[in-house]
Structures are given as structure tokens and as C-alpha cells.
Write a protein that binds this DNA or RNA. Structure first.
Lengths: 199, 199
DNA sequence: TGTACATCAGTGAACGCGCGTTCACTGATGTAC
DNA sequence: TGTACATCAGTGAACGCGCGTTCACTGATGTAC
């Protein structure tokens, strides 16, 4: 309804609003931790525009949520890849990968829930998530190739590792009250016990 | 609004409606996988009563959801305890415990989400969940006492096991489309690698 | 045995609210002449 | 340099909907006398 204090963008700069809307959506999703609870009208309020203005850039509420989640995942993937590439040693690279991913997710509990636990998973396929899983398999395979960990199947080892890491983040995100050891302590044990990384 | 085909209960049998409402709530929560998405009016429709009749037995929508979740958790805990008690050998008992818990949760994906991943966790404390965690610690301790697994800290071992199991169920529940090996295969690896159970 | 009545089990209308989406619109700004 | 006009960026009213909750109520049934 009533517009906020925000002025109109200059001609040709209409796309600026799009990123403002995405940013506001991410803030609200982080707060809510649930894509179904997000309302398009709340996003408009957060940005300071009329609810109908959202339709200038997104077909409907679902497309908006999807675009926001995809954007978050893109940042995440970039951070993980950068952390991994900062190390030559395969074990160090894999460790950096896992630590960075888990840490970033733990720092964005609401978005973690939207990305991995919301009903969006049932309602839309999110193909961009697949690359993240494959990256872990590759990282594990490099450790195997360099004989830095005991022989095994890269897919199975990566699956078990990802499963345990997912569980660690999920428990922390969903029961934030519980006292916990630092996340990396537990992740280190998983790397040692599940992959056989030497201590 | 309009009542269903369901007749009124006899005098003194008013509590029967309470359990019908709980059962309907559990059916809907299982479908929705999200406590916030459940509406009191949908529950009334499912039972075939007026929406206002729910207030005869529950203070408000939140109390209804809480009661339903507590009921589900009670059944779960009973099943897990029964499975565990069916074995004398501590390792067999622990294995039965973990398999039963994971299997039941996997078979009720919607209720798993409500119990462990919904915002209900933030809005209400669910003290009954604590006993389940303590049961696992005890089961692990028994294995340690009998020297059936390598020495270690029961709390830490139980935490890591629970974390990994939670991750396994969560991934399956949230990505039901993915092809997966049988759950018990993965759980067996976790028991072997995280606790050192001999193969 | 009959009947008045209290109680129990449940109803239905109504309230105000926030929602997603549609529609016709407004007014500033850049551009063609 | 001035001006008509197309386009762009965004608005505001309105729609129908389902929601949680409140309120006063109904009518069958068991019980006291």
C-alpha cells in the first residue's frame, strides 16, 4: 500500500530493485527459517515498496523464494570452493571445504533450514545443490588418490561424511539452546573416524 | 461450521473426541511436515466437527499441536525401549535401539520434521525428548562396560552416533526423490566406524 | 413409574486480520524532432 | 533550445480466501425426586 521513504530508481536502473528485494527476502527467510511462512507482502514492507512492485521482477511468490535461495546457495558454493582451493594438500583442502561449509550454514540457521529442510525441497527441484555434493566426492577422491587415507569408495565415504556433517549442523540449528562443544571439534572426529584421516 | 456425519458421543464419553482430534492432527502433521502449516480448522474438517469443538479439549492451536507431538513421541519412545529390551547383548540392544528409532522416523517423515525440524522447537520446550538422548548414552555405556567396543567417552560416542543417525534420517526425509541404499546399511557403517563395533 | 431439570457434548454465526494476486493508474525521465 | 511523447518504475484500491478465536446457543441424556 503506502510506499516507504525509498525513492524511485532512475530510468534503466529498474533492476536495482530486484536485488533489494532478494536481499530483503534473504533477511526474512533467515529470521523465519521457513519458506512457507514468508509472505510477499512482508518482503515489500521490508524493502519499503508497494506489494505489487514485487511483480515487476518476479512472477509470483514461489519464484521470489526460489531466486533468493539460489542466490544464497551461490554465495555458499563460492565460499566453499575458495576455501578448498586455498590448500594444495588434499586432506587440508577437504578439511577446509567441510569446515567452511558447516560454519557458514551454522551461521545462517534460518537459511540452512530453508535450503535443506523446508517443503521447498518437495515443491521445487534445486539442481544447483547437486554440484556441492559432487565437489565433496572429488575432494575425497583426491585424498584416496594420494593415499592419504585408507582405501575405500569415494562416493560412500563422501556420503557418510556429508550425512554426519548435515546432522551436526541440523541439530545445532534446531536446538540452539543446548550447550555444545565447538562445531569443528565434532567435525574433526568425523573426518578421523569416517574417513580415517590420521590424527 | 457444518457438522460431519459423526454423531455426538454419549454422556461421560466426551474424552473420546479428544483422541480423535489428536489422531486427525497427527495425520495432517504427517502430510504437511510443518506445524505452522497446520490449521485448527483443517483438523476440525478432518474429524468432521465444528472448528469450535476443538476448544472443548484444547486451549488453543498451539496446545493441540504440542499434545499431538508429545503423543507421537511417546509411541516412538515405547517402541524404541521395547526393541532395546528384547536383547541381552549390549551391542545387539544398542543396534536394535538405533535401527528402530531411525526406521520409525523414516516411516513418518512429516512427523520427524515436526518433531525435530519445525519452529515448534523454538516456540516450546519439549522436555520429553531428553530421555531419548539419555537412553542412547546408557546403551553405549553398557557396551563400554562389557568391553565390547574400544574404550571411550559414552557421552561423546553417543552424541556422534546420534548426530550421524539424525543426518541420515534428515537427508532421506528431505530429499525423498534421491536413490538410496537401505538405511540400515549406512547405520551399520556408523556403528562400526563411530563406535568401533566389530564387524 | 413419571417428569423436571442440570449437565454434558457440541454447534453456527460472526469478528477482524493478513494473505496472493489483478487491475487500471500515475508521474518522472529520457529522447526524437 | 524547446517541447511532445513514449517508456519506465512503481502505486493503490480492490477481490476473495482461510485463518484463530469469541460468543451465545441447542438439544440429547442422565438423574433426583
Amino acid at each position: 500500500m503506502e510506499a516507504g521513504t525509498r525513492g524511485r530508481n532512475r530510468r534503466g536502473q529498474g533492476e536495482l530493485l530486484r536485488s533489494e528485494i532478494i536481499a530483503a527476502t534473504l533477511r526474512l527467510l533467515e529470521e523465519l527459517g521457513d519458506d512457507q511462512a514468508l509472505s510477499l507482502r512482508a518482503v515489500a514492507r521490508e524493502v519499503g515498496i508497494a506489494a505489487t512492485s514485487v511483480y515487476l521482477h518476479f512472477e509470483d511468490r514461489d519464484q521470489l523464494v526460489y531466486a533468493a535461495v539460489e542466490s544464497f546457495h551461490g554465495d555458499l558454493a563460492a565460499a566453499v570452493e575458495a576455501a578448498e582451493n586455498a590448500h594444495d594438500d588434499p586432506v587440508a583442502a577437504l578439511t577446509a571445504r567441510v569446515f567452511t561449509l558447516a560454519d557458514r550454514l551454522q551461521r545462517h540457521p534460518g537459511l540452512f533450514k530453508v535450503l535443506h529442510e523446508s517443503t521447498l525441497n518437495q515443491r521445487a527441484s534445486m539442481p544447483f545443490k547437486q554440484a556441492m555434493g559432487e565437489g565433496t566426492v572429488t575432494a575425497v577422491q583426491r585424498c584416496l588418490d594420494a593415499a592419504l587415507i585408507p582405501p575405500g569408495d569415494a562416493h560412500e565415504l563422501a556420503l557418510d561424511l556429508r550425512t554426519a556433517v548435515h546432522g551436526a549442523v541440523s541439530l545445532r540449528v534446531n536446538q540452539p539452546g543446548e550447550p555444545r562443544e565447538p562445531l569443528t571439534d565434532q567435525l574433526t572426529r568425523f573426518l578421523v573416524k569416517l574417513l580415517g584421516i590420521p590424527t
